[in-house]
Simulated scan of single mutants.
Amino acid sequence: MSDEELDVAYNVRRKAGPELFDRHMARYKDMSEHAVDGLPGHPGIVYDEASGERLDVWGVGGDGLRPVFVFVHGGYWVALSRGVSSFMARTLHEQGVATVVPDYTLAPAVTLEEIVRQVRASIAWVHRHGREHGLDPGRIVVGGSSAGGHLTGMAMAGGWQAPLGLPEDVVKAAMPFSGLFDLRPLTRVYVNQWVKLDLERAAALSPALLPAGYRCPAVIAVAEHDGTGFLRQSRRFQPHWGAGELMVVPDRDHFDVVLDLADPESAVCRALLGLVRAT
Rank of each mutant, 00 (worst) to 15 (best):
G44N: 11
V119E: 05
G138E: 15
I220S: 09
R201Q: 15
P18H: 12
G38E: 05
S86D: 06
D198R: 07
R277I: 12
A26C: 05
S145V: 02
D136R: 14
M25K: 08
F87I: 04
P264M: 01
Q95P: 08
D253P: 08
G274F: 02
V97Q: 05
A79T: 02
V195Q: 00
D263I: 05
A262N: 02
D103I: 01
T152I: 09
E4L: 14
D63K: 11
W160A: 07
R13T: 03
V141A: 11
L106R: 10
A124Q: 11
A278P: 03
M25R: 10
L183P: 02
L272V: 06
K29G: 05
A203D: 13
G83K: 09
G64P: 04
I140N: 14
Q238V: 15
N11Y: 01
H73N: 10
F181D: 03
V171Q: 07
G242D: 13
D226W: 08
V100W: 06
V141S: 09
I45S: 06
H42K: 06
S85Y: 07
P217Q: 14
L80V: 10
L135H: 12
D48W: 08
G179S: 01
G229S: 12
E53A: 15
V70T: 08
P185A: 08
V189G: 05
A26S: 13
L80S: 10
A203F: 12
Y47M: 13
R27C: 03
L106C: 04
Y28E: 05
V258L: 01
G64L: 12
E200I: 04
V142M: 12
P264T: 00
V126G: 14
G148R: 04
F237M: 12
R120M: 11
V8W: 07
D48P: 07
Q118N: 12
V195M: 14
L197M: 13
L106S: 09
L65Q: 12
G41D: 01
E245Y: 00
H34W: 05
L210S: 07
E49P: 00
S178R: 03
E49F: 02
R201N: 14
E113V: 02
L106M: 09
R235Q: 15
T187H: 09
R23P: 06
T279N: 10
D251A: 15
R201A: 12
A271T: 00
Y104T: 00
L92C: 09
R128G: 13
I115Q: 02
L186R: 11
G149N: 07
D3P: 04
S266V: 03
P43G: 13
V12E: 10
R232Q: 15
R131W: 03
V171S: 02
D256I: 01
G138T: 14
G213Q: 10
G64Y: 13
S85R: 00
E49Y: 02
V268C: 00
G83L: 00
W241M: 03
D136G: 13
H73K: 12
V170K: 07
V110K: 00
H73E: 07
I45A: 07
A271W: 04
A9N: 08
